[in-house]
Amino acid sequence: MKFLTLEQGQLGALIEDEGQQQVVDLTAAAKLFELEPLPMTLAEIVGWTDEQVAALWGLAQVALDKGVSCRAYSEVKVIAPIPQPRRNILCLGKNYLDHAKEVAEKMQASSDAPEHPIIFTKATTSVIGPGDDIPAHAELTRKLDYEAELALIIGKEGRDIPEEQALDHVFGYTAINDVSARDLQKDHVQWFRAKSLDGFAPMGPVVVHRSVMPEPKDIQVSCHINGEQRQCANLDQLIFDLPTIIATLSKGMTLLPGDIIATGTPAGVGMGFRPSKYLKSGDEVVVSVSGVGSLTNRVV
């Protein structure tokens, strides 16, 4: 079950049909077939029950079979799955040991694994969608970097969530690029500004319901710059796994449906190379996540 957001903000479903990718406008189909409750956006359905989501997916299949409210994926403009998140994106820093080591070497700091998850946020206004341009912000930074990550979309509200129940609170998964200005990151010490400039959170192209995602240990995260692979790792290399992340964030703080959690990036970021390989105008950045697909953006 793959859901996306179409050009007018309406909810869509991406379906494989005889080797072709088809998109059903679920908002239009739900009106046509008088489905209740009427789904308008992806942000609205993340809090639905599994039964409601299954019924919605069944509607998408019916619409496709009848040839109504559907188009080829190649003909569709897709925007960020949740273009205006209700809260800042919650992010994990240095959550792959090899990445922590490459950062430590460059910054002449300790390369030990963090004792506790390193948590920061990105502003909601940093979100852009697949195919959108990443602004170079050349007037502000000379060290523009990429970070390929898996992101969780919370579907069930919870506080003090036990690790063994954590994944039950996830609606689905998507890909995100935690674009960063490394010079601003150093100048301001705290990471918020360096990671929150407009266009610094490409996201998408789809949100995949947790029921059809691979097991976390089988999920691979990778990044290619102009066709060159820079990052590649499986989630079993995380220092703090997904249940630990959710349990930690929810301790004393309520997680809400629609909250987005970026889980950390593997080794291979631009600053980690010698010499560094920072992004420049014209570069194509492709973030890929198993089960989700590829998120492509270009720097301008």
Rank of each mutant, 00 (worst) to 15 (best):
E105F: 12
R193A: 14
A201T: 11
A113S: 11
G264V: 08
V207L: 00
K122F: 01
C70W: 10
M271P: 10
V292Q: 08
T141D: 10
S196T: 03
V300S: 10
D198N: 14
V207F: 02
Q84S: 13
G58H: 06
Q10Y: 09
V285T: 02
P83I: 03
M271R: 11
P275W: 07
D112I: 11
S126Q: 05
R159H: 05
P205D: 03
K31D: 12
K66Y: 15
D112P: 02
D241T: 11
L184M: 11
A267Y: 10
R274L: 12
L38E: 14
K277W: 09
Q10T: 15
I153S: 01
A175F: 07
P205K: 07
L238R: 05
V285M: 04
A113V: 08
V189G: 12
H169D: 01
S126D: 01
K2Q: 14
T5C: 12
A194E: 10
H209F: 06
D187H: 15
F273I: 00
G199C: 06
N88Q: 11
A233D: 11
L32P: 04
G282Y: 07
C70D: 05
D241Q: 08
G19S: 05
D112V: 15
L235S: 08
L152C: 01
E115R: 13
K31A: 13
P275L: 05
V299K: 02
V286P: 04
D160P: 03
W48T: 06
C91Q: 05
R298V: 15
F120W: 11
F120G: 00
E164I: 09
F200C: 00
